[in-house]
Design a protein around this nucleic acid. Structure first.
Lengths: 118, 118
DNA sequence: CTAACGTACAACCGAATGGTTGCACGTTCC
DNA sequence: GGAACGTGCAACCATTCGGTTGTACGTTAG
């Protein structure tokens, strides 16, 4: 039995929603790639206001993809891959559902009659 | 070298957005689990109007997670795990970014001399 | 101390979401 | 042919989203 560490549906909603934006995925990519950064440093990368980037970071933080660490007057933003793994595991579970379906189908196809198109 | 089958950012937006809803995830789960179903059959499962479910299916279809196959007066909805794999691969890439970051750090901590650039 | 910096937050705005109801149209069944 | 079914689509509504500007407040620098 796989320990299916199911996050509550609302958490999954937040997670996938956070990933459903190009800017936010870029932020996560940058952060996981090794560059911790203050919010302003991050904001400098994007063609939008500081407040907009701050909101994106807030969404990522609520989704658990990112953590903020106060350091003087700055807040250092750091990537957190833990929730990411939850999302990936869910997708893998769905893919396994599909393959399991096929293994059932294989049994059917193992019969002498060849598969026909439609 | 992994064939980095990069979907355009807009497609990824659609994909993750489609997954960011409990009802839609449930539909995908049900479909990948092996039960192809007409839209009305699907709709019967949920406590909302037929049109609402139909919209959810449309979102899933635009994201490529589902295909519809006309069959008489019904449209049979079938799961399509291909795009799902794209999403999973992206998450895995992000996770690998993180682990790569650590292995780099390990190298630094393991060696008295700083790592050289190549 | 004062000025500049980094951040948070509120108010506002247009567009998109997620839901509803109603209607039109093709298909199936008597 | 006509009624019932399955589907798609438009109109509408409240809420959320993604962006803006402005303001307040703690921290750092001169």
């Amino acid at each position: 039995m796989v320990a299916r560490s199911h996050l509550p549906p609302a958490a999954l909603d937040r997670l996938f929603h956070a990933l459903a934006d190009t800017t936010r995925r870029d932020i996560v990519t940058r952060l996981l790639g090794g560059h911790d950064a203050s919010v302003t440093t991050l904001a400098a990368r994007y063609d939008m206001s500081f407040a907009a980037v701050q909101k994106h970071v807030a969404v990522l933080e609520k989704a658990g993809l990112v953590t903020k660490h106060p350091q003087g007057r700055e807040r250092i933003v750091r990537g957190n891959p833990h929730q990411l793994a939850h999302a990936r595991q869910l997708l893998q579970q769905l893919e396994r559902l599909w393959t399991a379906r096929f293994s059932q189908l294989d049994a059917i196809l193992a019969e002498p009659s060849p598969p026909k198109k439609r």
